[in-house]
Simulated assay, not measured.
Amino acid sequence: MRLWKYFLIFLFLSSCTSNQDPKFIANNQLIIDTHIDTPYRLYNQLEENGSYEDISKITTFDFDYIKALEGGLNVSFFSIYLPAQTQVDGSSFQLANELIDMVTTIVDNNSDHFFLLNNSVYLANLPGQNLIGIALGMENGAPIEGNLERVKYFFDKGIRYITLTHSKSNHISDSSYDENRQWGGLSTFGKELVSEMNNIGMIIDISHVSDEAFMQVLDISKVPVIASHSSLRYFTPGWERNVSDEMLIALADNGGVLQINFGSKFINYAEQNDDEYNFATVSQTVDHFDRAISLVGIDHVGIGSDFDGVGDTLPIGLKDASSYPNLIEEFLKRGYSQSDIQKILGGNTLRVWREVENYARKNTSD
């Protein structure tokens, strides 16, 4: 009897310790990062050197298998990024296919490290495994080229979200970076595209779009949407690339999720100057989470780091995919519960993904 007593005390003390350990939480909770730009960096290496680094091993990138495993990452949405120039020279469709095929080949050749993730069914079972799920998100809808059938085409190729535009307005939407606002938000085709993405089960991403397009998507979409890598304009006044309080509230009303971007410019834009780059901190990054949650609640915020997409601008303590425990540690310091942290790390994104899938499934069966 005495042995059982000591054993129960040991289990209690162990759980108290481990449950407050950031590394333990990272390894035992589902972590989904909705925006990692490694594919385009690999592509650039291939173009320049004829080969690229092996991401199943340690690399110079922000993301690789070793860093992801150390950080507890379970699902990386790899960005299939199409620069604005590709919509001008007509190469976006070809490049999108090349990038998708490159990622597929890497995953196939490293099946003991990665697997392609096409649905949300098994996500809850991933923590504690040594496999990293790779999902695909298309950054810039230029390859759609005005053809709604391309949504199904790219869905079948593995794409699970589409960022409607990027740094320049395209045939779908005005861009937050572009003074050319030819559509006043979404084009006529863009509005049709939103409905088609709903029907197919493709998540809509409204990072990069203009404010008007952002709100129009929310009016049209029948399911929650995401902003896959955006932070709060409250901390970066006047910078349209981030999301205003009004937009965040509308996104939450839609059921959607704001995925906080880690890039220092997204976190502390006003502190940058020409003399010396001012890197953000983990604390400043979590300030964005705090404010979003104070405005709309815990169910509408997630992680969209932009690893490998923002160059050497990442915050001190959040430099690569091994650093999610540092984020968790700051959440714990601020009194976040484990259930709240679980929602931020991946639960909220999982909910959106399932709602998008369920709507498309119901739409098909009807």
Rank of each mutant, 00 (worst) to 15 (best):
R2D: 11
W4R: 14
F12P: 07
L13W: 10
T17A: 15
Q20N: 15
D21W: 07
L30R: 08
I31Q: 00
T34A: 12
H35M: 00
D37R: 03
T38S: 11
T38E: 03
T38D: 03
P39W: 01
L42K: 04
L42F: 02
Y43C: 03
N44K: 15
G50P: 13
D54Y: 03
S56G: 03
I58P: 10
D62Y: 04
F63V: 05
I66T: 13
K67I: 02
A68F: 01
E70W: 10
G71T: 03
L73N: 06
N74W: 07
V75T: 09
S76H: 12
F78A: 11
L95E: 10
L99P: 02
L99W: 02
V103A: 01
N110Q: 01
N110L: 11
S120R: 10
Y122L: 14
P127L: 02
G128M: 08
G128A: 08
G128Y: 03
I134E: 00
I134V: 04
M138V: 06
E145C: 09
Y161G: 01
L164T: 03
T165Q: 01
K168N: 13
K168Y: 09
S169E: 06
D174M: 08
S175E: 04
S176L: 07
D178K: 08
S187W: 05
G190A: 09
V194K: 02
V194A: 00
E196S: 05
M197V: 12
M197Y: 09
S207D: 06
H208D: 06
V209W: 05
S210D: 03
A213P: 00
Q216H: 01
V217P: 09
V217W: 02
D219T: 14
I220C: 00
K222E: 15
V223L: 09
V223N: 02
A227H: 04
S228M: 04
H229A: 09
L232N: 05
L232P: 02
P237E: 06
W239I: 02
V243Q: 09
V243T: 14
N254L: 09
N254Y: 01
N254F: 06
V257G: 06
I260W: 04
F266T: 11
A270T: 15
Q272S: 04
N273F: 07
F279G: 11
Q284E: 15
V286L: 05
R291A: 10
I293E: 09
L295K: 14
G302I: 08
F307P: 08
I316Q: 08
G317E: 00
G317T: 00
G317A: 00
D320F: 06
S323R: 15
N326M: 04
I328T: 08
E329G: 12
E330A: 07
E330G: 00
G335M: 01
Q338C: 11
D340E: 15
I341K: 01
L345Y: 04
E355F: 02
V356Y: 05
A360W: 03
T364E: 14
S365N: 13
D366R: 15
D366E: 14
D366F: 12
